[in-house]
Design a protein around this nucleic acid. Structure first.
Lengths: 329, 329
DNA sequence: CCGTACGATGAAATCGATTGTAAGGTTCCC
DNA sequence: GGGAACCTTACAATCGATTTCATCGTACGG
């Protein structure tokens, strides 16, 4: 019944076919100069004829590297992370690397389980989208990791991100340019670096108009944005505008306003963050700060792979963001 | 300068520490019964003390398996695929497998490049979200793959999906129950199995009211849904409802209606497909057919890993879908 | 009390590729 | 014409874990 699959070819087979030793085949395939034109041609013909592909596992054992990187993130279903992964995968595939996905779901147990993959030798490098370095990986050199979007505090890990402080200033400044002064802010989870940076930008832009009662924190979900906004609309002194730390929470804010019979942008101007694919399709289309997610992913992969190859790269500067003005403000 | 990383421990080190041979350590770690309680305890203590982790690459070479699966999909940034991957990763991680992401971007070249990963021995199994088997993998046994969402025509690959035909009938039947007869359909790319199944359901539900002029095809993007709907609204005999093959195109349809000054659901009832996270947050909240994406991913992984372990699994039956009625219809 | 059977352990082969070192074959120069 | 130098190629060790087979010791039955 069980038809045996076509036996996988080994380098030995190719060597026999080409009439040389495996050593020569290996050199030919890895582009060594120590192979004559003639022999190389014969080997390439044999490879072509058999469809032979090098066994990465065996090569990996010998070379002590797997040509794979692990991307650790909270939630792959989130469109923000998805697009970053797209960029990472693009560059990695281009350089012949595989990309492993590690979904932590924000659970430390999962994070630890994934970190273990690192120790097993299955992975050469790590891209962190979680905003922190797993405890188990405390003694892994920083040169084998790169962080995206969220800088990792107290660590020398390279980070690829935009200038969140400047972006927040720009967004809030735009609202102020429209005449708004009572501008609220719905940030991400309290206590995280990203949240702090954007809050600081918001605060700096607000200057003397800053009012701590207009600041709330959510968990980046639509529901949390809605709840935060409801809380502020319940108060006597309502804001006339709100700057949200991502688009989902901005959508939540709009839903809250609508529930209070407040029109957007007439009664409440809303600005989001990220410019996820749906931002432009929402009603009203969302004004938001676009992050070059794909490019961030690509750059992160490029930096990591270069570091793995031993290259020293200049510390990455912030990538450019863009305030996309639509009809929600 | 370059501080050498802490030397990775080998099984030999653990063996020496426990005063036994590597063979015994290997047996103890793999749970063989051929190890005495006493020795096992000593080995476990040594492992604990050193934090030793088995080198998966070396083990993989010996065992001819990598404990990794590859998920091939068109676009990881798409929320539909993201959620499926989440389910796959959950189950795989649970069983100690790693998940590699392969983004094809619908390019045959990328697909071929990824297929090659399979030949390199870096991957044990494959999950296909692309709706087709890569040409390069023609002679890989079907027992090493599983398809999700889209059944692969003319192939014995196991498929995990809902009953698309029945779901389409249910959705269109619901619209008919509301009194609609001129119901349009915006399907996915023409010529693909999924598109055909849903179209057939639509057609069967419409019966004598079927009108080929009310059928258009998109590419699952918001823009394509909008274009398709505009096309139909330009015609004399407009539809009063539309059944779209995914939520993005449904959003596009709503935008088109709005551009024509047509209200939803008053002037046009809209039903989408998938129930992506934004469907319920849109204005109006989208009526749609929910696919259990995460569960589909989990089941797919379970089936694949079982097959890799040699288990024979019953052909999977269709998972349950759910018509989620909201305000767009 | 001795042989047998079995439980526990170790030595060594093995997985497939890479690479340092040795060796074979030319070529070229004096 | 002989030898040095060089260009190619082959042999064999190596990466780290798994597993077959052999061995040693002990318990048990006769």
């Amino acid at each position: 019944m069980d038809q045996t699959p076509p036996a996988r070819l080994k380098m030995t087979d190719v060597a026999r076919l080409a009439g040389v030793s495996v050593a020569t085949v290996s050199r030919a395939l890895s582009g060594s100069v120590l192979v004559s034109q003639d022999t190389r041609a014969r080997i390439e013909a044999a490879v072509e004829a058999t469809g032979y592909v090098v066994n990465q596992v065996a090569a990996g054992l010998r070379l002590q590297r797997s040509r794979q990187i692990l991307v650790m993130l909270p939630d792959i279903a989130n469109p923000f992370f998805g697009e970053v992964v797209l960029g990472i995968e693009e560059e990695a595939q281009h350089q012949g690397f595989g990309v492993l996905i590690g979904n932590t779901g924000r659970s430390p147990d999962r994070e630890a389980a994934l970190a273990r993959q690192f120790q097993t030798g299955a992975v050469d490098g790590l891209v962190l989208l979680t905003g922190r370095r797993p405890a188990l990986l405390a003694d892994v050199p920083a040169s084998r990791m790169v962080a995206v979007s969220e800088h990792i505090a107290d660590d020398s890990i390279a980070t690829v991100s935009i200038d969140n402080h400047a972006a927040a200033i720009e967004a809030v400044g735009y609202l102020r340019g429209l005449g708004h002064r009572r501008i609220a802010h719905i940030g991400g989870p309290a206590g995280n670096v990203l949240t702090a940076q954007r809050f600081q930008g918001y605060r700096d832009a607000q200057g003397g108009d800053f009012d701590p009662r207009l600041v709330r924190y959510g968990d980046y979900s639509i529901a949390s944005g809605e709840a935060a906004m409801r809380g502020m609309l319940d108060e006597a002194a309502r804001p006339t505008a709100v700057f949200c730390s991502n688009d989902e929470m901005a959508v939540g804010a709009i839903r809250a306003a609508r529930a209070f019979g407040i029109g957007v942008p007439a009664g409440l101007a809303v600005i989001g963050f990220d410019d996820i694919p749906f931002a432009g399709a929402y009603d009203p289309p969302l004004t938001t700060v676009r992050q070059p997610r794909r490019q961030m992913g690509r750059l992160a992969a490029r930096i990591l792979l270069a570091a793995l190859a031993g290259d020293e790269l200049p510390a990455p500067t912030a990538l450019p963001h863009l305030l996309v003005v639509r009809q929600s403000s």
